[in-house]
């Protein structure tokens, strides 16, 4: 039986981890590779590096981070943030990334998904979706530019379109739940997970271990992602996985 995955997400700016890391005994708390390696050792199933560099130089640094990560990590990792074309993807994949995540660029030009899938395979094309509930439209809508701009895409429609074009995985973030620590957006996650035939990663809202149990018991999400609760040691990956196992979730 395929295992449910636990994925810590690291925000990286100009080659450094942005959100503070206070729990691990790291020589350099800002080193993304050292942090990711720690996560590998405590049983994380995968790691996501989200590059939030604004400058071209910062992006160049990311390729070097990826290269080092590929040398150290014994688990797969995804790189996202600011990827505009298949050449950007090629640079990161060649440096050793297993998957590439695209968000805004794919909405601006959906053929990017097809181009990437054709050139590198669907297995490395992750489409990240930022979703927000709109009361007046009674549905979730897709936002771009880090949640700044609303699009006319309904989330389920866009997820299906992305998969039709070759996305191999959907990384679904609930903007409503993100940072709230009230739990994953279960209806949103299930709405998407039940409408596509690729794995869906639930993201946004995790605050307790119970929230992870919930998302795996009540939705068909394949994975759950979180950032600061792991970085600040509020939830330890190895303890989380032990709890999930006790709760009957298939865990590595």
């Amino acid at each position: 039986m395929i295992k449910k995955r636990i994925i810590p997400c690291l925000d990286v700016k100009d080659g450094r981890v942005v959100k503070g890391v206070s729990f691990l005994n790291l020589r350099d708390a800002g080193d993304p590779v050292e942090l990711a390696t720690q996560y590998d050792q405590v049983g994380a199933d995968e790691v996501v590096f989200l590059d939030i560099s604004a400058s071209q130089e910062g992006r160049g640094t990311m390729v070097e981070v990826v290269r080092q990560a590929a040398g150290q990590l014994r688990i797969p990792f995804t790189v996202g943030g600011g990827i505009r074309d298949t050449e950007d993807m090629y640079q990161l994949l060649r440096a050793g990334a297993d998957k590439i995540s695209v968000n805004t660029a794919a909405l601006l030009d959906p053929s990017l998904i097809e181009d990437g899938a054709r050139r590198f395979g669907s297995q490395c094309m992750v489409v990240a979706i930022d979703a927000c509930w709109m009361d007046d439209r009674d549905d979730w809508f897709v936002f771009t530019h880090g949640g700044q701009k609303k699009t006319d895409w309904r989330v389920v429609d866009w997820a299906q379109e992305a998969v039709r074009r070759g996305a191999g995985e959907i990384l679904l973030t609930s903007m409503d739940q993100d940072g709230q620590k009230n739990g994953f957006d279960l209806p949103l996650t299930q709405a998407v997970a039940s409408s596509v035939r690729v794995p869906v990663i639930a993201s946004g809202g995790a605050g307790t271990m119970e929230h992870f149990v919930e998302v795996f018991h009540e939705t068909s999400a394949a994975a759950a992602l979180a950032a600061s609760i792991f970085h600040y040691g509020e939830i330890k990956v190895n303890e989380l996985k032990a709890t999930l196992r006790e709760e009957g979730v298939a865990i590595r």
Binding site: I2, P76, G168
Partner: peptide, 28 residues
């Protein structure tokens, strides 16, 4: 779902030097 993607358990068929002391864990 196709591809088969993610961590899944190994089940060994017979002893072999390649599998020596390896536990039947999940692999990617």
């Amino acid at each position: 779902n196709i591809p088969h993607m993610g961590w899944n358990d190994l089940r060994f068929h017979s002893p072999h030097p390649l599998l020596r002391s390896v536990e039947e864990g999940a692999v990617y």
